[in-house]
Amino acid sequence: MNIALAIYSPPLSETSLRAIRFAKAALNNGHSIHRVFFYHEGVLHGSHLNTALKGEIPATDEWRNLQQSHGIELIVCIASAIKRGVINEQEANRYGKSTHNLADGYELSGLGQLLESAVSAERIVTFGP
């Protein structure tokens, strides 16, 4: 089954960890995940500055690994992201910020990507808020 995910919870939340476990279980059971859409507080997954301490699960890296191994698109809602300090080079230039932090493998894009997922995937599974 082709599944899309929407994540509204921040990294380190129980819901964020549940989403990672769900994605791995789905992929291990032969399902495909085309896209993960990070919205609301979920956009905080997109910062490469997130640093897991020893024994903690690095959610940003976990999704990046799944992106590389399974070709999953990691889409971060651009409006939610810039409000929360998750920004790529282009937006940093636009808003006059001296630095940017969007992690490799993640993309800033609009809500249309969430809606396209909802329409094209067989199931959309929401995590959070």
């Binding site: 509204y8 919205y39 939610s80 809500l111 249309g112 969430l114 809606l115």
Partner: peptide, 8 residues
């Protein structure tokens, strides 16, 4: 966020 998604 929900209303934004509705409009989109």
């Amino acid at each position: 966020e929900g209303l934004d998604a509705i409009l989109a």
